[in-house]
């Protein structure tokens, strides 16, 4: 069973629709018992970091998520919440990854949010079993996770490189939206669900 975590951040419908398109049944839930028993857990998110963290704490989902041992995929804000902290709303996050989430520097002349299709490179790990370097996926974000040893994909925005994906043990995160990235995104979801 695939559990998609229901919480205050939006965009869960897009994830459920994408899973249905690739023939996967998923349960949308905020029940810790259901989440703990799932074979795969997906943590979507579009929204603001500090209010999302507050919701997770109020529903005791923060401790549940940190204790999971099955394959776990955070998407966009979901991935950022897996880091130690975020500049957005000065939020303390889940701390699965030690990185600090930072606002794109505003003095470089490029536009914020980083919105649209960008290529992913330096791909490593099972999430990208079906992907190739240089493939395009869809991003919408104003905050980014710096490159580190946990980066399993990277992206460049006007000469500025950041983590497009993170991996550590059973925990994976993608900064982009595989559920909105056409056929390239569907292959990444498939790799997560079928190879992990």
């Amino acid at each position: 069973m695939i559990a998609v975590i229901r919480y205050s951040a939006g965009n869960v419908l897009s994830v459920m629709n994408a899973l249905a398109r690739i023939g996967k049944d998923a349960v949308l839930t905020d029940d810790p018992a259901v989440i703990s028993k799932a074979d795969h857990v997906i943590f979507p998110g579009v929204g603001e970091a500090s209010s999302a963290m507050q919701y997770l704490r109020e529903h005791r989902l923060d401790e549940v998520i940190k204790g999971l041992r099955q394959p776990f995929l955070g998407i966009c804000l979901g991935m950022q919440l897996m880091c130690s902290s975020s500049e957005e709303g000065d939020a303390s996050c889940l701390g699965i990854f030690p990185e600090h989430v930072t606002l794109f520097p505003r003095d470089r002349g490029y536009k914020i949010p980083h919105m649209g299709w960008n290529s992913i490179n330096g791909l490593s790990g099972p999430l990208f079993n079906r992907s190739s370097n240089g493939e395009y996926v869809y991003f919408v974000h104003s905050y980014y996770v710096p490159l580190s040893e946990h980066a399993s994909a990277m992206t460049e925005y006007d000469g500025f490189s950041f983590s497009a994906a993170l991996s550590k043990d059973n925990f994976h995160g993608v900064q982009f939206h595989p559920e909105k990235s056409g056929e390239a995104g569907e292959r990444i979801l498939r790799s997560f669900l079928e190879d992990l």
Binding site: L13, S14, N17, A18, A20, R21, Y138, V140, H177, E179, K180, S181, G182, E183, G185, E186
Partner: peptide, 8 residues
């Protein structure tokens, strides 16, 4: 549309 297409 949301069920059918995979782009924004």
């Amino acid at each position: 549309v949301s069920r059918t297409i995979s782009i924004p």
